[in-house]
Amino acid sequence: MDKKKYKMLVSKYTPKENRLTNGLIAFLVGGLMGVLGQTLVSFYAYYFSIPTKDASVFMIITLVFLGCFLTCLGFFDKMVSFARCGLIIPITGFAHSMMSAALEYRKEGLVTGLGANMFKLAGTVIIFGVVSAYLFGLLRYFVMGG
C-alpha cells in the first residue's frame, strides 16, 4: 500500500470531531462556570457579610473542593471529556489534575507515590505562572515603578 492510499484510509476512519459543537459546548459550560463563580461570590458576600475580595477566596475554595470531590466520585472525568476546555480552563481543571494524579499514584505509597507525583500535571501551571509573574513583575517595577 503506498503512502497516499494509507493516508486516505486513515483519514476515512479517524473519527471526525465537530469543532463548532466542541467550541459551543466549551463556551456554554465555561460560561456557566463563570456564572456559578459569580453566584457563589454574591452568595458568600451577602450571607457572611464579608467584602467581595474575601468572598472570592471562599468561591475558589468551593470550586476546588467541587472539582476534587467529583473527580473522586468518578463523574468529573466524563464531564471533562464532554466539555473539554469548558472545565479544564476554570480552576476546577487545576483541582482535577491534582486530584487525579493523587488518586492514581496513591497505591505507590504516600511519599514516593502521592507526595512525589501530586504536582505532576498541576506543577506546570504553578511554575510557568511564577516565572512569568516574576519577570513581568520585575518589568513593571523597573519600567513603571510598581
Binding site: 469543532r19 466549551a26 463556551f27 465555561g30 460560561g31 463563570g34 456564572v35 473539554r84
Partner: peptide, 27 residues
C-alpha cells in the same frame, strides 16, 4: 461573567482543536 468565562474557554477549545497542543500547554 457568562460571556467572559465562556469566551476564555472558547479560545482554549479552539487552540486545542486546531493545534497539537495538549491541555497542559494551554493552561
Amino acid at each position: 461573567a457568562f460571556l467572559f468565562a465562556g469566551t476564555v474557554c472558547l479560545i482554549g477549545q479552539m487552540i486545542l482543536d486546531n493545534t497539537k497542543l495538549t491541555p497542559g500547554h494551554i493552561t
